[in-house]
């Protein structure tokens, strides 16, 4: 359905220039991420704040400049400079956002908001049909059609997020990009929205890309999870495997720190010391080396490649070595 190969995203930033004529700095926001996603499946993307999760999916959607890499949608490579190709992309791929309230135009009624995509993607529909389709979609996400003439500020955060979902899905796309759709909601409402997304996914066969930093939610909704750090992929594995047995040192640290809502369980979070490298001046080696407890000499020389291990894919020299040696458990057995 959706395939992203070797995506790189850079931003030019002018603020750090010393003189008007000195070259602009370059922020390397996404550094070589690849994933494939089938219809009806979900990939979760996790990683710390600022590691490029939003930038990655925004570049897939054409909202941020992809400097290199290819995106294939429905078997067709997307050309980001080409209007027709972009319009096809947008009809198949929509997005929901982190801030439910800011993602709705405060001066439009929610009916206008939800009808708008139809005027772009279903121009053949009549105005009455559009209105009916929008109301049906609103009803589907749990907003009574009687409230369709209200403005976004008359709804709570959770309801606004539902309206955002209705807007994204009303033209029946096949891929839905979700940029932290539940981070701004509290647990009781978060569960409503996650459940709604799962139901809609089942009904419409949607492929979901789900960014979040709550691992519990990601584990819950995803089939596969991608762990990012400094814009690069550290590990990619089926959700259950990743949670049970993370392979990459960063993924391990991340999972060890997930708080458990049970006062009888004491977690032992693994503390990461050391500083993050600057995204404007990336080190040549493993991006995690400055904080990795297992860093070795070769780690700072060259980037570790992604290697396969036990159904996981991870970028770490430790695993590379281990995969060459026979597994200790096999010898014992």
């Amino acid at each position: 359905m959706l395939s992203v190969q070797n995506a790189y995203v850079e931003f030019r930033v002018a603020q750090t220039k010393k003189w008007p004529w000195s070259p602009a700095g370059v922020v390397h926001a996404v550094n070589g991420v690849s994933f494939d996603l089938e219809a009806g499946k979900t990939i979760g993307i996790v990683g710390e704040s600022g590691c490029g999760k939003s930038t990655l999916i925004r570049s897939v959607a054409g909202l941020a400049p992809l400097v290199s890499g290819t995106v294939t949608l429905d078997g067709e490579q997307v050309e980001y400079g080409n209007r027709a190709s972009m319009q096809r992309l947008r009809a198949t791929m929509q997005m929901i956002f982190q801030d439910p309230i800011a993602s709705l135009n405060p001066r439009m009624t929610i009916r206008e908001i939800v009808t708008e995509p139809l005027t772009f993607f279903r121009p053949e529909m009549g105005a009455a049909d559009r209105k009916a389709a929008a109301l049906a979609m609103l009803e589907r996400v749990g907003i009574p059609p009687a409230q369709a003439n209200r403005f976004p500020h008359e709804f709570s955060g959770g309801q606004c997020q539902r309206i955002g979902i209705a807007r994204a899905l009303v033209a029946e796309p096949k891929v839905l990009l979700c940029d932290e759709p539940v981070s701004a909601l509290d647990v009781s409402i978060q569960a409503q929205v996650v459940n709604l997304l799962k139901e809609l996914q089942r009904e419409m066969g949607l492929a979901l890309v789900f960014v979040a930093h709550d691992l519990g939610v990601v584990r819950h909704i995803s089939d596969e999870v991608l762990v990012m750090y400094m814009g690069a992929q550290m590990e990619r594995a089926p959700a259950a495997d990743l949670v049970r047995a993370p392979q990459h040192p960063y993924a391990k640290a991340l999972l060890s720190a997930v708080p458990v809502p049970d006062p009888n369980v004491r977690i032992a979070p693994q503390m990461l010391e050391g500083d993050l490298p600057s995204p404007m001046d990336l080190p040549p080696g493993c991006l995690f080396a400055s904080r990795c407890p297992h860093a070795m000499a070769k780690c700072i020389k060259a980037r570790p490649p992604m290697v396969q291990r036990k159904g996981h894919e991870a970028a770490c020299y430790l695993l590379d070595d281990a995969s060459k040696k026979p597994e200790p458990s096999l010898i014992d057995g």
Partner: peptide, 17 residues
Amino acid sequence: LRAVPNIEDPSDALTAI
């Protein structure tokens, strides 16, 4: 408490209020 997603045991639907 029911609405908190459990990372160990993801049953199918979260229990929303």
